[in-house]
């Protein structure tokens, strides 16, 4: 249903009604902006990248294959632009304190308890993943793309995608565990003092 509407709009745009592209932007701006935001972790950059995404999509609209969902296609552009951006940025010197490095405290299993994660922690954990892994986690778990879609998007073989996503999950899990453990130690210390 929604897909049909997308296709209808795109058809109109390709027929010369360029203004209609505004509707497409309206429908996907939050999704695209969120991907860029989570990929680069900076509002300014995310804005530029998501604008670039829509411009690129518009200029390449003839290349869009209606067999795929439009969201898959535009998320792919957003992801690729973000990864490119992160790669370019990596070559520039990063200020040392920009990388978050938390002291690693090993807490025993007894100290650890599970409680509802809050969003900030998840966001932070995603932020710390390497770009390719980040993209996989966002596309698969947040945007709900299938493995096949991701393979098409990232131009990677299935085995590699699966492998990376599995590793990404483990990293995510470990990092979340660490953060939670630190927090529980903190709370314990606060309570003692």
């Amino acid at each position: 249903m929604l897909q049909d509407l997308d296709h209808k709009i795109i058809e109109d745009v390709l027929q010369g009604d360029g203004d209609k592209f505004g509707e497409i932007i309206g429908r996907y701006k939050n999704g695209v902006y969120s991907i860029c935001m989570r990929m680069v972790g900076d509002a300014e950059e995310a804005r530029d990248l998501s604008q670039e995404t829509f411009i690129k999509a518009y200029n390449n609209l003839l290349k869009y294959n209606p067999e795929y969902k439009f969201s898959t296609w535009i998320f792919k552009i957003a992801t690729n632009l973000s990864i490119d951006y992160l790669r370019r940025k990596k070559h520039q010197a990063l200020p040392l304190d920009e990388k978050l490095s938390m002291p690693y405290d090993t807490a025993s299993a007894e100290d650890m308890y599970l409680h509802r994660c809050n969003k900030d922690e998840i966001e932070r954990v995603i932020q710390e993943l390497p770009p390719d892994y980040k993209a996989l986690v966002i596309l698969y778990h947040k945007e709900g793309l299938s493995y096949q879609n991701i393979c098409d998007v990232m131009k990677l073989p299935m085995s590699k995608v699966k492998n990376r996503l599995h590793r990404a999950r483990s990293m995510l899990k470990e990092r979340l565990k660490e953060i939670k453990e630190e927090e529980s130690i903190w709370t314990a210390k606060e309570l003692q003092s």
Binding site: V32, Y33, H141
Partner: peptide
Amino acid sequence: QWMREALEGVEELEDFEAP
């Protein structure tokens, strides 16, 4: 459990509002 915590957390994230 940690894995579920992390992945469900990701799934439940909400979209940011575009500028």
